[in-house]
Design a protein around this nucleic acid. Structure first.
Lengths: 341, 341
DNA sequence: CTGAAAGCGCTTACAG
DNA sequence: CTGAAAGCGCTTACAG
């Protein structure tokens, strides 16, 4: 059995017990199945593998990273994980990362530029191989800087400038909503539009407005209200939109949570979603279908966005060119946009 | 300016440019403000600090970890980050970790024992200093193993055996719900109880059942339905509870999302939450207040749980004893449990 | 087929 | 006050 060493098992533990040199052990453990022949004799390979298994050897990633200058670490920045949309995208990232032997750091930035900066520095300080940003500002200035520092990254959920991104086709999503509302005869629609720095809200709004214009109808500026992306943000924005002598007959909130807030604001005014005012959300989070008034919304492929985002980063890390992708949205019609019979 | 080195700035870069030895530079950069005197002469300290700043020196954490056997890394396991409750707890963990110069790995385990195993191994393989589990099974068997491997950890959200934990006082929360429903005159209550392996659901249920028993009322087994913790889990469990000739007059779902599912299931039967059946949730997530029928629920201090969980781990890492904590819940009464006037 | 050496970037006693 | 050495655990040409 050899000497019983305390502390974690290292290459040296194995080498000593087998009377080999650490470099031999390293070579064996490192070789892909097919090239093990070149690493050592068949019997040595066998003995090393068996003992490594028995002792539960796990390479020290700090030593490996120090030596190879590759950390197999990916940094992920999101506005906030308590936003189910981003959390789900992150789940996709994590799944795909695990499949490829990568680990991920996530940090919440609250969409605050100052925090984006400090978190990015912190993550880069940890020597990640690449980053994924879910909190891009549409102007992309900060990201230009990051690119200038030579660190590879991919955006998910939001686009910015020409940086590679994996997003939902938000513009198309907005158009789908417009078509649905036009069919229902709504000529006067208002938009809970999200934050002005996020491409998601911008593009979803633009899609709706453009499609309305094509139908000969304009959506005036005072029908479009900025908002936070959460429930209370949607509530506040809707309250403002309703504070007018001639309220709209339909509301498009660019996010399911904002839509829930919109429904809350309507209720405050004694108005019911569906019967009195059509409400449409975005994302088709698992809540949408279960609300007391089930929510019409646009399904966006959140998990896939994450998975595909990581794969794109992987390609970048291997020196290939990264192409941006827009994934297809799908309109899901429920009771919140159609009056009960 | 000295030689222009390519690649990242290391201690050597600074040492060479200043004609010092790396060990001197290390000592200076390492010293706390007050002990810098002992590290080097005042002028050397000044020169080193200035240049490090200028060059934007960031120590290579892999080298530091390799040398010091401390990674300043914490591994966090949660059932799923797309559960807003866990995501919020994690935000608390991350905040507190950042304040203490620690970074965190999070992984989703989906509450699957197999995944808990592989993720734990993966995280330990990354040489974290400690772990935080938000996905503890109440039997604690797996955690006993982890403890046996000598890795320090703290539980959040759920308890298990005698392992140190930071949780909401779930039992008390259940009692608060019982008192509220008893006051309203409900003698026949049903529980959407969550997963049988999670202390949260178990304790919340027990609190309610015990308080009812003290009032001379029993909650029979067929009024208690296991459920997943998400919306569709709550829906399914409620559908089962309603499938009886004499349905209950009140439903306690041990989680806001399950409660939303419960409301959905009621609606399917033509029943309205509040007017027809009282519904109470747990956690007071931001949605609760904004639902078309605002949800009565028990507020649990999610952020604090995370922050306090990390602090407890920190104490453990410093060799102190860790005490479990139960944070105080608070009942929030809204329309879902009181008929409209 | 296997060994020996060098080195990734850092820290920490130990000298002087 | 500063330097020199050793070593954390690994990988990778280079010998033989």
């Amino acid at each position: 059995m050899g000497t019983q060493r305390s502390g974690p098992v290292t290459l040296r533990t194995i080498a000593d017990q087998l009377g080999l040199h650490v470099s031999t052990v390293s070579r064996v453990l490192h070789a892909k199945p097919d090239e093990s022949l070149r690493a050592a004799s068949a019997s040595t390979v066998e003995r090393v593998r068996r003992l490594a298994d028995e002792l539960g050897y796990q390479p020290n990633p700090h030593a490996t990273s120090l030596r190879t200058r590759r950390s197999n670490l990916v940094g992920v920045l999101v506005p906030r994980l308590s936003d189910m949309v981003l959390a789900t995208i992150y789940e996709g990232i994590e799944e795909a990362a695990a499949e490829h032997g990568l680990s991920t750091f996530v940090a919440n930035t609250g969409d605050r530029p100052e925090t984006q900066r400090t978190r990015t520095n912190m993550v880069i300080g940890r020597r990640v191989d690449g980053m994924i940003f879910g909190d891009a500002y549409v102007d992309g200035r900060f990201l230009d800087e990051v690119a200038g520092r030579g660190i590879p990254f991919v955006l998910v959920s939001r686009t910015a400038g020409a940086h590679p991104s994996v997003t939902c086709d938000d513009y198309l999503g907005g158009r789908l909503v417009a078509e649905h509302l036009l069919e229902l005869g709504h000529r006067d629609v208002a938009v809970v539009a999200g934050e002005p720095y996020a491409s998601t809200g911008i593009d979803r709004t633009a899609g709706l407005v453009d499609r309305y214009r094509e139908a000969g109808l304009s959506v005036p500026a005072d029908r479009i209200a900025q908002s936070r992306f959460d429930v209370s943000g949607g509530h506040a924005a809707t309250a403002r939109l309703l504070d007018t002598p001639n309220p709209p007959t339909a509301i498009f909130a660019v996010n399911d949570f904002a839509a829930i807030g919109a429904i809350g604001a309507l209720r405050h005014q004694g108005l019911r979603a569906g019967d009195d005012v059509a409400v449409v959300g975005f994302n088709d989070t698992p809540l949408a279908a279960e609300l007391p008034v089930p929510l019409t919304t646009v399904r966006s492929p959140m998990l896939d966005m994450g998975r595909e985002g990581l794969r794109t980063l992987l390609r970048l890390l291997e020196g290939e060119a990264a192409e941006s992708k827009r994934l297809r949205p799908e309109l899901i019609v429920r009771a919140s946009s159609v009056p009960s019979p």
